[in-house]
């Protein structure tokens, strides 16, 4: 699904292969490049050099618009701070990503209704984010990421602002989504969260220092000391 070859700039000669259906965890200390890697895979960050293949597309050869099209069609985001739009209701927040696609209003309404039902937040559809708890907000955040049926969900410390029971609920949700076929890449500091995934990649100073799928990963001595 995803292939990164000699990805450099903030990252250092990253080579990474991700198959469809995987649940990847990216770990590493602050400043190691976790969020940057996520932004690059999510096609929000253009500051890189190298080769990037996504679903048969040569992303490194695409212009910004085409990258945005790919992002819009196949990728959903979940953020640590939820990043719901404060002035929109839950319903409208779920509608926002669909409104950026060429989807009719009635179809959008049907998709949002389905996701509200699936996430059991129908009763909260007219509330604003400020009227929800942190866990509820992140639930909406995940619902928003899923509403467009993405092939890939990128989650940047999705439980960072939640207490443990809420975090567990969200992680169970990710696991379920993954089991239903959605590829998930999460960035986390939590070993517990990492345990929900099936592959953990370690980053340090922009280098991949550990990747179970690629034991030959070269690590410069200065990093590996």
């Amino acid at each position: 699904m995803i292939q990164l070859r000699n990805m450099t700039y903030v990252l250092r000669r990253i080579n990474l292969d991700i198959q469809e259906g995987e649940f990847i965890t990216v770990m590493g200390p602050s400043g190691s490049g976790k969020s940057t890697l996520l932004s690059i895979i999510g096609m929000l960050d253009d500051s890189w050099a190298g080769e990037f293949y996504f679903l048969e597309n040569e992303v490194h050869k695409l212009d910004r618009k085409k990258r945005s099209d790919l992002n819009r069609k196949h990728i959903g985001f979940v953020f640590q701070s939820y990043h719901l739009l404060d002035n929109l209701t839950v319903y409208e927040n779920l509608d926002v990503p669909l409104s950026y696609r060429n989807i009719s209003r009635s179809q959008r309404a049907s998709m949002v209704a389905e996701i509200l039902d699936r996430f059991q937040i129908v009763g909260k559809k007219d509330l604003f984010p400020s009227q929800l708890s942190g866990g509820q907000q992140q639930l909406v955040g995940v619902a928003r990421a899923v509403v467009g049926n993405p092939k890939l969900i990128l989650a940047d410390e999705p439980t960072g602002n939640l207490h443990s029971s809420q975090a567990k609920e969200i992680m169970e949700l990710f696991k379920k989504l993954n089991e239903e076929g959605t590829t998930i890449i999460q960035v986390t500091h939590s070993e517990v969260n990492a345990s929900y995934g099936n592959r953990t990649i370690q980053l340090f100073d922009g280098w991949i220092t550990s990747d179970p799928a690629n034991p030959q990963t070269s690590t410069p001595s200065v990093v590996a000391r």
């Binding site: 618009k65 819009r72 985001f77 953020f79 990043h83 926002v96 990503p97 950026y100 696609r101």
Partner: peptide, 8 residues
């Protein structure tokens, strides 16, 4: 956020 959610 809007851009991340796909807004051109």
């Amino acid at each position: 956020i809007r851009t991340a959610l796909g807004a051109a």
